Computed example of a mutant assay.
Amino acid sequence: MKVRVYYEDTDTGGVVYHSNYLNFCERARSDAFFNIGSTPVLENGHFVARRVEAEYLLSAKLGDELKVTTQLSVMKAASFKLLQTIYKDEKKIFELSITLAYITFEGKPQKITTDVKELLLSLFSS
């Protein structure tokens, strides 16, 4: 997914504010669902962040066009882990490892169904 850096994404020096890299990754995850006519809110539940590890390698600036890639790295019974990478001009500038848990609408963890696993594999496997 391509992302353009806008003024609202930056600090007063025109450098992307650190938390906005997480927003860019969230948009990429959501867009994967939107691109197939779905949403991340599924019939029986949705996903919440359980663990996040971020590595900031280089800064992006106002006007930059960035590319966000998303790769499924681990699938468990009730959660999965994605590796998301942000590139600027083919150079890696940010990396996120995020574990997402599948929960009911009441907030309780639930097992990821076979259908949802297949959907996740189709969206985030190369």
Rank of each mutant, 00 (worst) to 15 (best):
R51D: 07
F94Q: 14
A77H: 10
E43A: 10
Q110V: 04
L96M: 13
G107K: 06
R51F: 01
F24W: 02
L96P: 00
K108G: 01
E118D: 09
L96S: 02
S59T: 08
D31Q: 13
Y6E: 13
S122H: 08
Y56D: 12
L42H: 06
L121D: 06
A60V: 07
G45H: 00
V74I: 04
K2L: 12
E53K: 01
D31M: 12
S38D: 15
A60Y: 00
F94W: 08
N20R: 10
A54E: 15
G14L: 13
F24Q: 01
M75D: 11
E43H: 08
T99D: 03
L42P: 01
Y56K: 07
Q71C: 04
T10Y: 06
E90Y: 13
T99Q: 03
V68Q: 00
Y17D: 15
E43T: 10
S59G: 11
E106Y: 04
A49C: 10
K81N: 05
F124C: 08
T104M: 09
I36W: 03
F33P: 12
S38Q: 06
V48Y: 02
Y56M: 06
A28E: 08
I36S: 09
D9T: 00
S38Y: 06
S73P: 02
L66Y: 09
A60G: 12
S79W: 02
K111R: 13
P109C: 15
R27A: 05
A28H: 12
N44D: 13
A49W: 03
L62F: 12
L123S: 03
V15A: 04
E8F: 13
K91H: 14
K92I: 14
S59F: 07
L121M: 06
K67F: 11
V16A: 05
L119C: 07
S73I: 08
L119I: 09
G107Q: 08
K92C: 14
D64L: 07
R50W: 10
F105Y: 10
I98C: 12
N35P: 05
D9H: 00
G107H: 07
Y87V: 11
T99G: 05
L100F: 11
G13A: 15
K2Q: 12
F124V: 10
F34E: 11
T70G: 15
Y87D: 15
H18P: 09
D31L: 14
L83V: 08
R50P: 07
P40T: 05
A60L: 03
K61N: 14
V16Y: 01
T114H: 04
V48S: 05
F94I: 09
T113W: 03
K117P: 03
L72I: 06
T70C: 13
Y102W: 04
S125G: 05
I98K: 08
T12C: 15
V48F: 05
N23S: 12
T104L: 08
T70Y: 06
F80R: 00
A49H: 02
G37I: 12
I112G: 02
S38H: 06
Y87N: 14
F94C: 11
L82S: 13
I86N: 00
R51G: 02
T114M: 02
G45P: 00
D64F: 09
L120F: 12
A49E: 01
Y6T: 15
L120E: 02
A32D: 09
H18W: 11
F33T: 05
V68I: 08
I36H: 07
M1H: 13
V15Y: 04
Q71N: 10
N35F: 10
V74Q: 01
R4G: 11
D64H: 04
E95F: 00
Q110E: 06
V116P: 08
V3G: 02
